[in-house]
Design a protein around this nucleic acid. Structure first.
Length: 514
RNA sequence: GCCGGGGUAGCUCAGCGGCAGAGCAGAGGACUCAUAAGCCUUUGGUCGGUGGUUCAAAUCCACUCCCCGGCACCA
């Protein structure tokens, strides 16, 4: 039977600045989900990329004294490099400056124009001449340009509009359905703020911006960056461009994962555009909050941007991944501080799973010379541990289906904690003193190794770098930790051979801040 | 201003009609396999305030005070 397809996307990031820890969360979350699905046997297409058009990029490039294309070429590499450092395994990287993407954008624009969903109208607003920027009255600060604080003038220009107003009912139904948008509280926001008053048509072209995709039938206009950007999700599959053959197989997306600031475009504009194109809608839109520092959104002007390179270098890839995935919850913003990271990583990774691996492996070495004997003697006290370890995969399946990665991790670490308790209750060091209880001792240690096999197996999607090192130490093969073995007991061979190794997650002290 | 969500232990939060809970932090203890790790016990709360419904209210209702999120073209 052919593998079931699974298509997951990050937003395409703007290379107008360096990638920060917020980009990392979205991307690592998608990577964990993608890896989990691959483990489950899906044919996964995990898409990420960069959104390279628009005035801001053009200005950045000019002020750096280089051409926009050269600028974005350089910046895009920084994103790719960071994903490598974070061990993010994406399948495709789309850039809005790629030829095939431009072809899709132009084709879609033409198609929607031909179908009457895009029409020529007039954009009315305020204009700041030095900034070359249009603003809405609401955006103004004290009636002046929010960027430079100077006077603005009334402005109108001809522009193309997308008939978003025609989709108020359809989008309203989609949002009320309760399954499309996660978490549901976000859907309520959108319904109250946009659907209830009714959607307005959306301006999808600009004349003042030259760094963009020209409108095919009116090239003095360029396509508005958001309209351009959203189409990456289908251009990267080859829709209307001939570059890839994946559209039939992978559309529609199983989930778009985005931060709350760009939810509106994904929850309202995007489904409307797809409907106008006659395409099916993404199955889920998962919206997460921001990572805050000192209670505030990270931003360059506040000088509180966290550099992910420094963090990974200092604490390791998997520690950073674990922190992000364990601390971030879908509903709210989450506060970042190095102290919180340290606490989490020390408590769960160093004192938790790392220490459990160490104590278990050492006991097998000490009491059995590294190779467990095959004799067994079960006891009632083994049951709760075995039962919860065997029930774990179902739990993580469900939480992953709902994009609650933090809950999946919490469930896994509950079992780790149970295993620590089991060590105390069974007291292997007491059993070891009595030669008659050798079979019992072997059973206890085997149960601990099996618990580690299952938990580390379920943790690979989250910490793909370190988990294989656990397998080496506990004597597990790749097949032992295959998905279909993670709800079975007794997979490690009876005379399993362990191998003591390095400390996996050393305990860390707080250093100077990043 | 409008639309949502929330105020419960020092911190993060669960509970949403039936004896106030968990994790972390703090205190004490037993143990020794382990990364001074892990385990056990334990301190700690007028459940934002007022009034109501009820045999019974963190829980339902009304009012009130705070906090947070969102409010379209961030071009």
């Amino acid at each position: 039977m052919a593998k079931k397809p699974f298509f997951i996307t990050t937003p395409i990031y703007s290379p107008s600045g360096n990638p920060h820890i917020g980009h990392c969360y979205t991307t690592v979350a998608c990577d964990a989900i993608a890896r989990y699905r691959r483990m489950q046997g899906y044919a996964v297409l995990f898409l990420t990329g960069t959104d390279e058009h628009g005035l801001k990029i053009e200005q950045k490039a000019r002020s750096a004294g280089i051409e926009p294309q050269a600028y974005v070429d350089g910046m895009t590499e920084r994103f790719r490099k960071l994903w490598d450092v974070l061990n993010v395994r994406y399948d495709r990287f789309v850039r809005t400056t790629d030829d095939y993407h431009v072809r899709t954008v132009q084709s879609v624009f033409q198609k929607l124009y031909d179908r009457g969903y895009i029409y020529k109208g007039q954009y009315v607003g305020k204009y700041c001449t030095p900034c070359e920027s249009f603003w809405t009255p609401k955006q103004l600060v004290d009636g002046k340009c929010p960027d430079c604080g100077r006077e603005v003038t009334d402005a109108r220009e001809e522009a193309y509009f997308f008939k978003l107003s025609a989709f108020t009912d359809a989008i309203g139904k989609l949002l009320e359905g309760g399954t499309f948008l996660q978490p549901n509280s976000r859907a309520k926001e959108l319904i109250g703020n946009f659907i209830k008053p009714g959607l307005e048509d959306f301006c999808v072209s600009r004349t003042g911006v030259t760094w963009g995709v020209p409108v095919p039938f009116d090239p003095k206009h360029t396509v508005y960056v958001w309209f351009d950007a959203l189409l990456n999700y289908i251009s990267a599959l080859g829709y209307e461009n001939g570059a890839f053959e994946d559209f039939q197989c992978f559309w529609s997306a199983d989930v778009h994962f985005v931060a709350k600031d760009i939810m509106r475009f994904h929850a309202i504009l995007w489904p409307a555009v797809l409907t106008a194109l006659g395409l099916s809608l993404p199955k889920h839109l998962a919206v997460h909050g921001w990572i805050t520092v000192g209670g505030e959104k990270m931003s360059k002007s506040r000088g509180n941007v966290i550099d992910p390179y420094v963090l990974t270098e200092r604490y390791g890839t998997d520690a950073v991944r674990y922190f992000l995935l364990r601390e971030m919850i879908l509903e709210n913003d989450s506060e970042f501080s190095e102290a919180v990271l340290l606490k989490r990583v020390n408590a769960d990774l160093a004192n938790g799973i790392g220490n459990l691996v160490a104590r278990t492996v050492v006991m097998v070495e000490k009491y059995f010379g590294g190779t467990l004997s095959a004799e067994r003697e079960a006891a009632p006290i083994d049951e709760p541990l075995i039962k919860s370890a065997l029930a774990l995969r179902n739990k993580t399946d469900t939480t992953m289906d709902n994009f609650r990665l933090n809950e999946a991790l919490a469930a896994i670490f509950e079992v780790i904690s149970l295993a620590d308790k089991y060590v105390d209750e069974t007291a292997p060091w007491v059993l070891a003193k009595d030669p008659i209880r050798r079979a019992r001792l072997a059973t206890v240690l085997y149960n601990l190794l099996e618990t580690l096999r299952i938990t580390s197996g379920l943790l690979v999607p989250f910490m793909p770098t370190m988990m294989p090192k656990i397998w080496e130490q506990i004597g597990a093969t790749e097949e032992d930790v295959a998905y279909d073995k993670l709800n079975q007991w007794g997979i490690l061979k009876p005379q399993v051979k362990v191998c003591k190794g390095e400390i996996l997650f050393p305990k860390r002290e707080l250093q100077e801040h990043v």
